[in-house]
């Protein structure tokens, strides 16, 4: 992971995080193809050593409500971050970003599943990539013109 400076800037130093018994730590969603990997103990251990790992997280506020989904157009620009065929920016320690569009209405459940379809270049290594509607600056939704830095960032799924 990148180390974060006092002012939130990304430093050149890298922090190595090891996850013992990683295979046993995954927590599965009861019915969907979703898993979680708790890493808080390791991050807290880094902080106790005076290291501040750089990370950006989604919060509950990024999960769109039904009203949020209603405000989206049928075709929305979406962004994913992943590792297609294992490709990544090893030098800068960043994943690869792809742009695409929704291929099913965000408000609708695709084929009776709690899911949707996106028209985007996806390959092995993109599994579990977050699918995001990134509205940074000025954008339009069903209610009209909106503006603001990161104000409309919403997490559509993964």
């Amino acid at each position: 992971m990148h180390e974060q400076g006092q002012d939130g800037e990304i430093l050149d130093t890298r922090l190595r995080v090891e996850l013992p018994e990683c295979g046993r730590r995954w927590i599965r969603h009861p019915s969907e193809d979703l898993v979680a990997l708790p890493v808080l103990p390791e991050l807290e251990a880094l902080r106790r050593r005076g290291k501040n790992p750089y990370r950006r997280s989604f919060s509950i506020g990024n999960v769109p409500s039904d009203a949020n989904l209603q405000s989206l157009f049928t075709v929305e620009d979406v962004t994913i971050a992943g590792y297609p065929f294992g490709a990544w920016d090893e030098f800068n320690n960043f994943p690869i970003l792809h742009l695409g569009v929704t291929a099913s209405a965000p408000v609708a459940d695709y084929n009776w599943q709690s899911a949707g379809i996106v028209d985007i270049a996806t390959f092995p290594g993109c599994s579990c990539s977050p699918v995001m509607v990134l509205n940074d600056g000025v954008w339009i939704d069903a209610q009209g013109l909106k503006a603001g830095p990161q104000a409309g960032c919403s997490f559509s799924g993964c």
């Binding site: 927590i27 599965r28 969603h29 009861p30 969907e32 193809d33 979703l34 898993v35 979680a36 708790p38 989604f58 509950i60 990024n62 999960v63 769109p64 994913i80 695409g100 291929a103 459940d109 695709y110 709690s114 899911a115 949707g116 379809i117 996106v118 028209d119 985007i120 270049a121 996806t122 390959f123 993109c126 699918v131 919403s154 997490f155 559509s156 799924g157 993964c158």
Partner: peptide, 25 residues
Amino acid sequence: VHVHLGLYIKGRELLVLGETVLKQV
């Protein structure tokens, strides 16, 4: 050839997963 369509799970399922994580932790 990949047809450039991806299936994503709706974000609301993360809330369910979050509850599952809390129960286990």
